[in-house]
Simulated scan of single mutants.
Amino acid sequence: MAKKTQRLSDELSAREFSSTLEKIGRRDRTEKAAFERDVLTLFNSTQNWKAIRLPGGGNTRPGDLLVTRVDLEQERRYIIDCTNEVNPGSIKRAYDGLRYHIDRSPERPPDFDEYWHVGPHMIAVPMRRRPRNDRRFRVLDLRQLKALLAAPKPKREMAVTRIGKAFQANEKEIMLAISGLILQIEEKLETLGGERPNSDDAKAKNAKDIFDLEKMKIELERIRELAAAFTKGKAPEKDVVKSVKTFRDDLHEWWEERHGSLLTTTAKSALFVSSASVLALMGANTPTALSVVGALIGGKVMLKTIKKVGKKVLGAIQ
């Protein structure tokens, strides 16, 4: 009786063990299928790459996915072998499968260029990831695969001009200053737009002021756009320099035409000082701008808050 009970217990344990293995196998197959879908989506969402599942789950050849891309006007083909985990055992099995596929038909070269063994993560891999230094075989985890497919970042060239160097060194500070100046111009434009001059001369003067300020705003927005592209390596330095110099020249012209009102009008004085401050940050300040700022501050034609802006200008220039 005791022997029969023991035998039944052993049979039950064997069935439980078999059932547990079957559950683990189903879970592993489900996880592998999900990972295959992720890898397939990753390749197909990356420019110049195209991926398909191999027929029969890769039974006709090793691997699960066939990935292609055109390189130097020639199609290159990659077999992707997906696994739940990259480890020494999985690498050995993958490479043995690759060699078997190649060696069984030595008269017929393989119809792919490389074989990639890929898993969500990689553990305990002290062995060489290129067995026999076979350059057709590559081992990657998901993080490495994403990095490999990521578009290369544009190379950021070192600036050679004073203006370019200023943007590379103080991009955030300059961008904030430009945005602040644009807001200041917009406030002035709103004020001018609300004025209703009576005489023809006053109307002409109002229209000219609005035209000048709108032109300054457009130039500042252009500088901001080009500078953002330049610091990311997407625009040439010469374009930024040209746009900054255009704004500087127009500011000088504005001074020549409006210096009388600039010296007597607080709002216009503040706008000029702020503009000169931005030029100083951009490395485009000139003796003319500095002398004007000094005259405005020395003449005490501005409020205390405007004097503080002027001091910042002189501090940035020194």
Rank of each mutant, 00 (worst) to 15 (best):
L149W: 09
R162C: 09
M282H: 06
K153R: 15
D250A: 05
I223D: 02
A147N: 11
E173P: 04
K205G: 07
L281D: 03
E187C: 06
E186T: 14
D141S: 11
E225L: 08
Q168W: 03
E221W: 01
A177L: 04
K203I: 15
D200M: 11
K172M: 07
I174C: 00
A177Y: 02
A204N: 10
I210H: 02
S199K: 12
K245V: 14
A177W: 01
I163A: 04
L181K: 03
S277R: 01
Q168D: 04
S199T: 15
E219S: 14
R196P: 06
E190P: 02
A166S: 10
K146D: 01
E186Q: 12
E171D: 09
E173W: 08
K153H: 13
I185S: 01
L140V: 08
E187N: 14
K268R: 11
L148A: 09
K268M: 08
L148G: 07
A235I: 07
D209E: 12
F167Y: 09
R162P: 02
R222T: 12
L142D: 06
K242G: 01
E219F: 07
K172R: 13
E237K: 03
A177S: 06
I174L: 00
R222P: 00
K217T: 15
S243E: 02
L183M: 13
L192Q: 00
D201H: 15
K155D: 08
T231C: 05
K146A: 08
P236I: 05
T161L: 02
K153D: 14
A229V: 13
K238R: 13
D200K: 09
E190S: 15
D209M: 09
V244P: 05
V160P: 07
E257Q: 08
K245Y: 11
L271F: 08
L262T: 12
I182S: 01
A204T: 12
E157F: 15
K208V: 13
L148W: 08
L181A: 04
S243C: 04
P152V: 08
F272Y: 00
E171L: 07
T161G: 08
R156K: 15
P197T: 14
R248K: 06
A280Y: 01
L271W: 03
L251N: 03
D209A: 01
D239V: 11
S179T: 15
E253A: 09
V278K: 05
S261M: 09
I174N: 00
T191H: 12
A235F: 11
A159R: 04
E256G: 11
R222N: 13
G283C: 10
L149I: 08
P154N: 10
L149M: 02
L192F: 05
A147H: 14
A166W: 03
K268E: 08
S179R: 15
E214I: 11
L279I: 07
L189E: 06
